[in-house]
Simulated assay, not measured.
Amino acid sequence: MKIARLTIYHIEIPFKRRFAHARAERTRSDSVVVKVSLENGLAGFGEGCPRSYVTGETAESVFSVIQDSKEKVASFSPANFAEALEILRSFRLDSEKKRPRLPSSNAARCALELALLDLSSKCFQRSFAEILETLLPQDVFQPPRPVRYSAVISTGSLSKQITTALAMRLFGFRQIKVKVEDSENDAKKLRLLRRTLGKKKEMRIDINQAFSFDQAVRFFEGISDLQVAGVEEPLVGQELERLKELKVRFGLPLIADESLVTLEDARYLAEGDLMDIFDIRLSKCGGLMPSAAIIEFALKNGIGYGLGSHVGETGILSAAGRWLASSVAGLKFLEGSYDRFLLKENITFPDITLGYGGKAPPLSGLGLGVNVDEEALETVATRKEEITF
C-alpha cells in the first residue's frame, strides 16, 4: 500500500439552529477533512474539529501541521494490516506537546489517523471492530453492539431551554446534558428544567470552565438537591487545582473535558484526584488510538469514562465515534451522531443519525462504514489543498 495523494479540506456547514455554551457560539460547523488516496483510486477519509479554547488549534493551524507532516504520510506504506496498526501506534506529529495543558495538534492527528485507518481497513479487508479489539483493554472490549446517545441542551433563554427539554423528553432520551453560563441565575433555570425533564431522566451539567471557585461554590449550593449525575468543567483553567475542594465539599461527580486533551493530562488529573469521569472526544484526544489509551488509563485508576463529541461533527467523526462506543463497555455517557438534527446537509451516506430515544445500531462493513459524497464535500469546502507524492 502506497499513498499517492493527500487532500485537505476546510469545511463549513450551516446549522439548522444556533448552538452555544459559555465559551463559544456556533451557527455552522468548522472541521478539517483529510483524504488519502492510492493510485488505484481507493481512498480513506478522516476529520478533525479544531477548537482554539480546547487544543489551541484553528483550521489554519491544522492545515499547516498536516502539510508539514506530508513526508510521514508519504512514507506510510505498510505491507499488511498488523504493520499498519503498528505504524499508527507511534504516529506523532512534530508539533505535538508532551506536557499537560499546552496546545496540541490533536485535531490534526485525529484527521490523519482516521483517514489512514479508513484506508487500511479497506485495503487489507479488515474491519474497524478488529482494529478496536487490538486497541482496547480486554476488560472493556465487546463485539459491536447497539448504543444509546444522550442529548445536549444549549445555553439560551429559559423558554427555549424548556421547549428543548420537553422535546427531548418526548423523544425518549434517558440522559440529558445542560449547558450553563450564569452562576447567579442558571441554578434557578435548572430547577425548572429538572421539573420539565422529570426525576427519571439523568441530568448532567456542563459549565465549560466558566466559573471562578467562589462562583462555583454558590452555584453548587443552588443545585445540591437536583439529582445531578455530574458537573463538567466547573472551574476556569487557572483554578483547576481547587477542583478537589469542590468534590470534598459537595460530593458531586466532576467530569473532565477541556482539561483532558492528552494522556499526560489524564495522569495530572488522576494524581491530584481532581476529576471522577473523563469525557473523551476523538478529535480533542487525537484519534482512536490516544482515546483508547486514555480509556485504559481510566480503567486502571478507577476513573469513569464517557464518549463526547464536538458540535458540528460530520458523519465521518460520527461513524468513528459509533465504532468506538459500540465496542467499549462501561461508558458513563455517549454524545454525538446528531447529524441531520443539526447540519443542514451532510457529506456522508448512509445517514447514521441517532434514532428515537438516542438509540443507534452498530456499523458494519469495511472502513468507517460510511461513504463520503465528494461532490457535497467540494460544495461545503472553503479551502482545499492537494499534495501529490
Rank of each mutant, 00 (worst) to 15 (best):
262 T>W: 08
240 L>W: 06
67 Q>W: 12
233 E>K: 00
104 S>G: 10
187 A>Q: 02
32 V>N: 01
354 L>M: 14
180 V>M: 11
105 S>Y: 01
248 V>Q: 00
202 E>V: 02
197 L>F: 10
49 C>G: 01
21 H>P: 01
150 S>Y: 04
129 A>R: 11
267 R>V: 07
19 F>Q: 01
266 A>F: 04
46 G>N: 03
137 P>D: 07
221 E>R: 12
346 N>D: 15
360 A>M: 10
132 L>C: 06
380 V>K: 07
355 G>H: 04
373 D>M: 12
149 Y>R: 07
234 P>W: 08
238 Q>H: 13
332 K>M: 04
161 Q>N: 11
96 E>V: 09
96 E>S: 08
333 F>K: 03
220 F>C: 01
119 L>S: 05
251 G>L: 06
114 L>G: 03
188 K>C: 05
255 I>D: 00
86 E>T: 13
88 L>N: 09
370 V>Y: 03
377 L>I: 09
245 E>D: 10
97 K>C: 11
259 S>N: 10
261 V>F: 07
302 G>Q: 04
150 S>G: 15
257 D>V: 05
51 R>E: 09
39 E>V: 09
371 N>V: 09
57 E>D: 02
130 E>P: 03
281 R>F: 11
176 I>Q: 03
233 E>T: 07
388 T>Q: 12
346 N>V: 14
142 Q>C: 10
57 E>P: 04
80 N>D: 15
265 D>Q: 10
155 T>S: 08
111 A>F: 07
292 A>T: 07
23 R>Q: 11
248 V>L: 04
44 G>H: 04
172 G>P: 04
377 L>V: 07
182 D>S: 14
150 S>I: 00
82 A>P: 04
177 K>C: 08
287 G>E: 01
302 G>I: 03
141 F>R: 09
28 R>M: 06
300 K>W: 03
130 E>I: 09
296 E>H: 12
113 E>N: 08
90 S>T: 14
133 E>H: 12
139 D>K: 15
362 P>T: 15
209 Q>K: 13
344 K>Q: 14
185 N>C: 09
34 V>R: 00
240 L>K: 05
155 T>F: 10
295 I>D: 06
248 V>H: 03
59 A>L: 06
100 P>V: 09
25 E>W: 08
227 Q>N: 13
132 L>I: 12
388 T>C: 13
236 V>N: 00
125 Q>D: 10
346 N>Y: 02
241 E>S: 14
253 P>W: 05
22 A>R: 13
287 G>D: 02
35 K>A: 10
118 D>M: 08
319 A>Q: 03
183 S>Q: 02
21 H>T: 11
295 I>H: 05
382 T>K: 15
185 N>F: 14
283 S>M: 13
216 A>C: 01
86 E>Y: 12
308 G>E: 05
100 P>M: 12
88 L>P: 07
37 S>I: 05
378 E>D: 10
44 G>L: 03
91 F>L: 10
316 I>M: 06
95 S>N: 05
382 T>V: 15
356 Y>G: 02
105 S>L: 08
149 Y>D: 01
59 A>W: 02
115 A>S: 10
219 F>V: 00
180 V>L: 11
331 L>C: 09
119 L>H: 06
8 I>A: 01
264 E>T: 14
